[in-house]
């Protein structure tokens, strides 16, 4: 089994490497002179020359790639063309702020999703099941910003003006110093992914509850609670872990829109700013960062899958 995990780890590393290649190759798409493309037509020749030097444009492509990759590996993400400062400084606090959003939404949606999914799977075909299914179907259809705007209308401006609709904390102060400003962003992200986790959990649980071994456990006279905890749940965890991972990765994308909507000082907001100002190295750094988060989350889900698979576990005990 440990060999399987090591293999999976190597695959992740290979994918991560290909991702760096892709992110780098994307910069080659910049039309014409990259420096001019970034700085625009009004840029002075001096600034263009400086940027060309900074981007190492005259060096061969592979050398530029290796330099950049070397920087990334040693934790130096480059220099922002917009601020002229290191990308690391720019992202430092923002990573923490975004992680707060992500982790809060992930924990909340996983807990709610698993509970609701299990609960409805046990009440298949009844009114509670139909209601939850219907609501999650509707919410699942909505893009992040639609949910966000709806929440702002409902809880922040027109109907019940209870919560701030934008982040108020001054720069430099941690976002969690005013917890009320976290509520709407976290709630939006939670609403975005909970329906998926609920539906998947319901489907997986339904399948497991219909399985031969669960029927057999009931025919053996095992109490229902034991049937659920011992015979059903362990088999649902593996497949659901994959879906949760997928949804968390989705959060990493959704966070961009939500941060923009709530003017939240996180990585997503920085990405939008960087795209607008064509701040290439910042865009590279952030897309790479998000892809890395995604790869790690998926890796963890697969390891959970490997650990919960009885066939693989048995190999260890043998």
């Amino acid at each position: 089994m440990s060999r399987l995990i090591v293999r999976r780890l190597l695959v992740s590393l290979a994918v991560l490497w290909l991702v760096t290649l892709l992110v780098f190759v994307a910069t080659l798409l910049l039309p014409g002179d990259p420096a001019r493309a970034i700085l625009g037509q009004q840029a002075t020749p001096e600034r263009i020359a400086a940027l060309r030097a900074q981007l190492d444009i005259d060096a061969p492509v592979w050398e530029r790639y290796l330099n950049w990759l070397g920087g990334v590996v040693t934790g130096d993400l480059g220099t922002s063309t917009a601020t002229q400062g290191p990308v690391n400084d720019l992202l430092g606090d923002r990573i923490g702020a975004s992680l707060v959003l992500l982790v809060a939404a992930a924990v909340l949606s996983t807990l709610v999703g698993l509970a609701l999914g299990t609960w409805t799977a046990m009440r298949r075909g009844r009114a509670a099941d139909h209601t939850v299914s219907g609501i999650s179907l509707v919410i699942a259809a909505l893009p992040e910003f639609v949910i966000g705007v709806a929440l702002i209308v409902l809880l922040s401006t027109t109907v019940f003006p209870l919560l701030p609709s934008v982040t108020l904390a001054p720069p430099g102060e941690p976002v969690w110093s005013q917890p009320s400003q976290l509520v709407l962003p976290v709630l939006t992200l939670t609403l975005v992914v909970t329906p998926y986790i609920t539906r998947m959990m319901r489907a997986t649980m339904s399948e497991v509850l219909d399985s031969g071994y669960v029927e057999m456990a009931r025919l053996k006279g095992i109490p229902e609670k034991t049937v659920l905890l011992r015979h059903a749940l362990p088999h649902a965890i593996g497949p659901v872990a994959q879906v949760i991972a997928l949804q968390l990765a989705w959060l990493a994308g959704g966070v961009v829109v939500v941060e923009f909507l709530f003017r939240y000082p996180g990585v997503g907001q920085a990405l939008i700013d960087a795209v607008n100002s064509r701040d290439v190295e910042v865009v590279q750094a952030i897309t790479l960062l998000i892809a890395a988060v995604y790869i790690v989350v998926n890796l963890l889900a697969d390891i959970v899958g490997i650990l919960t698979s009885p066939k693989l576990r048995a190999e260890v005990t043998r």
Partner: peptide
């Protein structure tokens, strides 16, 4: 009342 199922491969819990 006890029951012996048709397909033991499906009726035994694979993880126990």
């Amino acid at each position: 009342l006890a029951y012996v199922p048709q397909d033991p491969a499906l009726s035994l819990n694979p993880a126990l």
